[in-house]
Design a protein around this nucleic acid. Structure first.
Lengths: 372, 372
DNA sequence: TAGCGGCGCTTTATCGATTAAACAAGTTCC
DNA sequence: GGAACTTGTTTAATCGATAAAGCGCCGCTA
């Protein structure tokens, strides 16, 4: 659109070749270590490339190889606030480390305009800027995801997508995890009247966590004392859910929040009303991306292995891209339960980590600066 | 390296052209809206492109136009823990919104191996995968940055780089901000013995914030009661700095932390020793990326406009790329002071925001889910 | 009616890298 | 001493998009 770019000394294969006195074909083969090129030439070309600081043009290579050498992380913007930011950071960390291992670039694609049906990220795929994509925090009714999966382009979804049987996905068992932590409130802390503040129910996560909660109260015969309020995963919605429940005259001695942000908001309201946590009401959250540990009281929660999940997703993606994996698969990762002060297990800054399944707690998935 | 990718129905310009019955050149011009192509053909081509779902190949275009249509955000990995994650998230938000405005892809490049002098991000630039780069959290002694700037490739740095006069940079006045918030402790809360826990002094930010602190105590004639301990911006280092200061028998009634993470760690130690905040010791932090608001007590801090900074950086970068801006420039953004409970200004969850300069507080740079 | 200008499209060349196929030397073998 | 090989390189084609130059065919004018 504007003038041509300044000519930042760009070294092409031609420069390398002409310095050595061969053609670009020979130079290309030399750099690739082809046997048909004499050792002498190979060395000379390598030396020249080194001296000139030659780096292959990604465009030239991509065009010729029909492969961009990049993967994309796609974030449907409508869910920017749904999963919150800390989650996304963990995702980026995991994906970028896998991308580095595969010498691939990482493209981050947000969808600027939900209004336009012209989904920005489909363009990313169709323009072949990326060889594949990882999609996270997609809503159930986001038909674009379906379209994307159906085009057959390499796509890995993070989360659970029971309605997309042909997708490759990586997730955790939200139902089991929520069930376990709710049962903890009941069995260990004697909670009898439970409230669940769910996430948005247009996301599978919201549905599954609610289902886990319901299974727990049903299993203990407490369903008549249990209630569910829908939130949107934001701190403020957690506060509102608790406030409106209190105003309705509802009584509860335990709250299961679908994430830590809402737990934080809810606890704020409880504090303002003089209701003590955990003495009067025991509270648990979900995610453990950072907030849960630093709040007062610290929140008992489910630690979501976002970084491991996304790393695995990226590795699956690379397998799809090079064709070494086929067909729909779903990987499920184990989670840890982290007991802290908000349920009454620990006091102050103490915490106890227990795997939901398996033996040992999983390595801390890059929590914030726990040690240096 | 592996087999060729499966042939996901890829629509090229040739397909569009042959469907209409013209050459690719004509089709290209038609889509570009060239006048030399008849309206009838233009329409036909556009319709065909639409029907086939044609999206131009980024590689083909990049090769031909000598422009990738992408910008990179570069994160020297050595500083991954230095700035912490939340900061980076804000940066991504800002940059990606600018990138979307310019129809550019966003590449995120972390440096996997500091060991190799082969800086990964220089490859990004030299391979021309990106037309320019934004570099953030670079250490003073990172000579790669200097090299990068000197190559003349379009680069914008976030932060202050007094030793790189030819760089284009965007930052805040760390000295003035820290000075102001330290003076607040002294003037409003009567602090007399001050401690500063600085960031790493191989980052300009660390140096500048320390300098601001020192200017404040010097200005008030309190330099003989002041001390500085170097931290590394991690929560743990803040804890250690406070712990060791206490063990040295040092006494203080105010602490200026170079960021909120360290303040959090420091406050934990104070709490453990039974020292009350703000009654016994008033505390301030820096950044306000999220933690400061939710901790107990909430931390008085300087709100760094990371999102606006990075958005501006990206816009500067686009200007450099298309040649409409030349020469080194430095943009400095204003910051807000946010008074909360840790210094004694407010209680509970209250907060008061004041601009350091100018009239009105700046819009909340995408704080976490304040309202929905 | 011959010649001229312009419209609308095609031809051609290019960007950088890669690879199959062709080819010029030099060896080896019968 | 010529055929068959080997070796090391060059030629040429390709990937997709696009800009410049070229070329029929039209209508218009003298």
């Amino acid at each position: 659109m504007a003038k041509r770019p300044a000519d930042h000394s760009t070294v092409t294969l031609k420069d390398v070749a002409s310095r050595v006195g061969v053609t670009t074909a020979a130079a290309s083969m030399a750099l690739a270590g082809h046997e048909r090129i004499s050792e002498k030439t190979r060395d000379a070309v390598r030396r020249a490339a080194d001296e000139l600081g030659y780096v292959p043009s990604s465009a030239g290579r991509a065009l010729r190889n029909q492969r961009a050498g990049a993967i994309a992380v796609i974030v449907p913007n409508t869910s920017q606030h749904v999963f919150g930011h800390l989650y996304f950071m963990h995702v980026l960390t995991g994906v970028s480390s896998a991308a580095n291992d595969h010498d691939a670039q990482l493209i981050v694609s947000t969808n600027p305009d939900e209004a336009h049906g012209v989904v920005a990220y489909e363009r990313v795929m169709r323009s072949r800027s990326a060889d594949g994509a990882i999609v996270t925090s997609a809503a159930i009714d986001d038909s674009n995801i379906e379209t994307l999966v159906e085009t057959g382009l390499p796509v890995v979804l993070i989360g659970n997508f029971p309605y997309l049987p042909s997708a490759v996905t990586v997730g955790i068992d939200d139902v089991a995890a929520t069930k376990a932590i709710a049962e903890h409130l009941i069995d260990e802390h004697g909670a009898r009247s439970l409230l669940h503040v769910s996430g948005t129910l247009d996301h599978q996560t919201g549905i599954d966590r609610r289902e886990g909660f319901l299974e727990a109260v049903r299993g203990r015969g407490l369903e008549s004392f249990a209630a569910v309020v829908e939130g949107d995963l934001s701190e403020e919605s957690g506060a509102q859910a608790v406030a409106s429940s209190l105003e309705d005259g509802r009584r509860f001695d335990g709250i299961v929040f679908a994430n830590d942000d809402m737990a934080l908001g809810g606890m704020r309201v409880l504090r303002e009303r003089g209701i003590r946590v955990p003495e009067d009401v025991a509270v648990v959250g979900f995610d453990d991306f950072g907030l849960a540990r630093v709040s007062t009281p610290a929140i008992t929660t489910v630690r979501t292995p976002a970084e491991r999940m996304s790393r695995l997703a990226a590795e699956q993606l690379f397998r799809l891209i090079d064709g070494s994996a086929e067909g729909p698969t779903h990987h499920e990762l184990d989670v840890d339960l982290v007991f802290r002060a908000s349920c009454g297990c620990e006091s102050g800054d103490g915490e106890r980590v227990t795997p939901l399944r398996g033996e040992e707690p999983h390595r801390n998935d890059r929590q914030r600066s726990v040690s240096s």
